[in-house]
Design a protein around this nucleic acid. Structure first.
Length: 208
DNA sequence: GTTCTAGAAC
DNA sequence: GTTCTAGAAC
C-alpha cells in the first residue's frame, strides 16, 4: 500500500490522546486562478480539455459535462458575450457553428444541439455542443436542466438568423426565471417531481 | 460555474 | 429519519 502522510500509524506508540487531529501538512500549491467566472480562459489552455484549435477558435471538453458528449467552442478573439457580437463577427459565429456540426457528425449515434446560454455565467462567448442524452452525474440541478431545455438555450442557427436580420441577438425572452420553470422531459410529456426522478426517467430514452 | 449545507419536503 | 433543493460563498 502507498505511504499516506495523513494516515495515523495506529501501531505506533504515542503520547497524544487518540482524539488528537491528524497534523495538517502544507497544502500543495494551488494553480493560480482568478475569479471563477474566468475559468474558461484557463480551460482554453488546458491540454487535458483541448480537442482542437486553429487561428480562429478553440474547442474544449466541458469540464463538467452534462451529457455523454459536451464540448465548448470559443473564439480566439475576445468576444465577451452574445450582446457584444458585431455584425462583422457573424462569419466567425457561422464558422463556429460549422465546427460544431463537424464535431457532432463524429458521433453518429448521438443527437446533438449546439447553442448559447442566454445569460452565461462564464466570461468569453462559448458555443455549447451537447448530445441530447443528458446522462451525466454532473447534471444535478433544475438550473442545469433548464439551461439546456428551455428558451434559455439559444440554438446557434437562431442566434445567427437574429444577428443577420436585426443586427443583434434577440434575448428579450430570456430571463433567469426560465431556470426556475417546472421540470419537463425533453422527449416526452413526463413531468418529473424532482431532479432524481427526471434523471431516472431519462434512462428510458437512452438507445440500448 | 461548483461546493456545501441548512432546513424544507417527503 | 432520509431526500432534496435553494442560496451563500468576503
Amino acid at each position: 500500500p502507498e505511504f499516506d502522510p495523513h494516515k495515523v500509524d495506529e501501531n505506533a506508540e504515542t503520547f497524544e490522546p487518540s482524539t488528537t487531529k491528524v497534523p495538517q501538512y502544507p497544502q500543495e500549491p494551488k494553480k493560480q486562478q482568478g475569479h471563477w467566472s474566468l475559468g474558461l480562459l484557463t480551460s482554453m489552455n488546458d491540454p487535458e480539455l483541448l480537442i482542437e484549435k486553429d487561428d480562429k477558435i478553440v474547442i474544449i471538453k466541458d469540464k463538467y459535462p452534462k451529457a455523454h458528449h459536451h464540448f465548448l467552442i470559443l473564439p480566439q478573439e475576445n468576444i465577451p458575450s452574445l450582446k457584444s457580437v458585431k455584425p462583422t463577427q457573424i462569419s466567425l459565429l457561422k464558422y463556429m457553428e460549422s465546427k460544431a456540426s463537424i464535431l457532432a457528425s463524429k458521433y453518429p449515434n448521438s443527437e446533438f444541439r449546439y447553442g448559447y446560454h442566454a445569460i452565461p455565467s462564464m466570461a468569453r462567448l462559448h458555443l455549447h455542443v451537447i448530445s441530447q442524452d443528458f446522462d451525466s452525474t454532473c447534471l444535478k440541478s433544475k438550473r442545469h436542466w433548464n439551461s439546456f431545455n428551455t428558451k434559455y438555450f439559444l440554438d446557434s442557427t437562431d442566434v445567427i438568423r437574429s444577428l443577420e436580420k436585426y443586427g443583434q441577438c434577440d434575448t428579450s425572452e430570456a430571463s433567469k426565471d426560465l431556470l426556475n420553470e417546472q421540470l419537463k422531459c425533453h422527449k416526452c410529456s413526463y413531468i418529473p417531481q424532482n431532479m432524481p426522478k427526471l434523471k431516472d426517467h431519462l434512462k428510458n430514452h437512452l438507445q440500448m
